[in-house]
Amino acid sequence: MRSLPFVLALGRAARERRLAILLWILQLLPALLATVPLAAFFSATLGPAPSGDRFLERLDLVLLRDLVETNRALFGALGPVFGVVAAIALLANAFFAGGALETLLRPDRRSLALRFAGGGARYFARFLRMGLAAVPLAALVGGLASAPFWIARGALSFRAEAAKFWLGLAGATAAALGVVAVLLALDLARIAVARDDARGGVRALLRATRSLVRRPAAPFSIWLGLATTLVVAVALLGALRNAVGLGSGGAILASFLLLQLAIAARAFYRIALWSGEIALAPAAGGGSRIRP
């Protein structure tokens, strides 16, 4: 019996353990950096305050409000900080994709770090342009996919609450699938560009989107299989974290480790997805290589 493509992709990812660990570390380091000022504040404020121990039992909103009031400036800065983190992450997205694809496509004798860094640098500008182009494209595709549902919903009487709810949900799902489609197309286009070291990344993106819309089955089936596996894994890890709680130093350490496993799982998922997509990516210069 032939293995499902996503299972094969998982197998490939398992062989690229070191790449997954590298990606995981590259998520952890900037997050640690951003956490440091907050951690210092929490230590200074909650260390001497027994009232804060209530947080160990549950999320006490009143105490949380008091905590925020203790340093409004710090918490006020969280929004911009998250914005900066998000912006850096989006930039990093282009670099990580380049590094990962160079590693997967050219398994030569160079060290992992060299291959990753080299690929990230080589493809950064092209992949960044493609990523920026993907944003309006995703909005367009998502909007077009969900439009029929919203139009149907708008035509209903206010009394048709049930139908409006389900149509709204279907519309949101269609929009999400549209966005996923563009993200998969972005992956395929980046693979094509990296494999052929081609220019014209935006053209490759448009071509890949067209191909995917015409033949969505293969890429979506790989994505669905891997995403489902990831969701199950993260849910299990999340349930374990809930069970462990944060009531003691040991529990916090265990929770930290479980969190890192979840982030690492995401890295594995990403490598598996790229691995599965490599076989499907069309040539950057044209022509479809997507096989059903």
Partner: peptide, 24 residues
């Protein structure tokens, strides 16, 4: 500092997940 460490972990999780979601 148990409670402080718990909150630091929550903050780390939020940053890490944001980075992983957008960065990968």
């Amino acid at each position: 500092r148990t409670s402080a460490h718990a909150w630091a972990l929550r903050a780390l999780a939020a940053f890490e997940r944001t980075f992983a979601f957008l960065g990968l």
